[in-house]
Amino acid sequence: MRGPHDVGGLQDGPVDTEAHPLTFWEKQIDGLRAAVGAIGLVNTHENRAAVEALGHDAYNTLAYYERWTAALCRLLIDKGALTQDEIDARVALVRQRLAASGELESGMESP
């Protein structure tokens, strides 16, 4: 009954009060999400609902912008902007490219 995002009042450990700056990749996702929002393709409420719909395991495992990426992917497919097949094909291509250029952490070369 309680969604994975609805954490108010639950127990948790100390707050890490340091501010960690966004990485290059996180800024890219933030910018992409904003750009898709600006053209009216995906609104903020849809983004939140899609993040919540990832379920407890994914919500609690993924980092903030990883959740946004997963949610955006789902919404783009649902809205017909992209297909699962073309996303799968492009992910494979990007994975190969990053592996070849040495930008991929070892162990990530295959799905």
Partner: peptide, 9 residues
């Protein structure tokens, strides 16, 4: 995987 996915999207 999600970083790769983000780049792909």
């Amino acid at each position: 995987y999600y970083q790769i996915l983000g780049i792909a999207l």
